[in-house]
Simulated assay, not measured.
Amino acid sequence: MTDDVIFRRRALADGVTDSEIRHARNSGRLVRVATGAYVSDEYFAGLDAPALHRVRIAAALQSRPPGVVVSHASAALLHGMDLGDISLERVHLTRNHASGGGRTSGVHVHATPFDADEVVTLGGLPVTAPARTVVDAARISTFDQAVVLGDSALHRRLVTTQEILDAVGRAGPRKGIATARRAAGFLDGRSESPGESLSRIRIRRHGLPSPELQHVLRDGSGAFLGRVDFFWAGSGVVGEFDGMGKYGVDGSQAAVAVHREKLREDAIRDAGYEVVRWTWRDLFDFATVKARYERACARSGHRR
Rank of each mutant, 00 (worst) to 15 (best):
P113L: 02
L77I: 02
S87R: 01
R157Q: 14
L93S: 10
A153D: 02
T128L: 07
R103W: 06
H92P: 00
T179G: 10
T160Q: 06
H53R: 10
N96Q: 06
A60I: 01
N96L: 08
L154C: 15
R156S: 11
A49P: 03
A76V: 04
A51G: 11
R54N: 02
T104G: 15
E118T: 02
E118P: 11
A131L: 11
V119K: 12
P126I: 00
A146T: 05
V147M: 13
M81P: 08
L165Q: 15
R157Y: 14
V147A: 14
Q162R: 12
G67K: 04
A137N: 13
R132A: 12
H97Q: 11
P130G: 11
A58F: 05
S74G: 08
I177K: 14
Q162D: 11
V68N: 09
H79G: 14
A184V: 05
A171V: 00
P65V: 00
T179V: 15
G102P: 08
D115M: 05
A73I: 03
V168T: 04
S74W: 07
D82I: 00
V68M: 08
D85I: 00
V148L: 13
A76E: 07
N96Y: 03
R157F: 10
N96W: 01
R54Y: 00
R174G: 15
A153Q: 06
P130Q: 07
P173F: 03
G172I: 01
I164S: 15
A98W: 14
R54C: 13
A75R: 06
V168F: 12
L93V: 02
S105K: 04
A73P: 11
T161A: 15
T160K: 07
A111D: 07
L78Q: 08
I140L: 10
P126H: 03
R181P: 09
A167Q: 10
D115L: 06
T104V: 07
E118K: 07
V168I: 13
H79Y: 14
L158P: 12
H155I: 00
S152E: 06
T112S: 15
A178T: 12
R181G: 13
A180E: 02
A49Y: 00
S71Q: 02
V135G: 10
H155S: 08
F114S: 03
G84M: 04
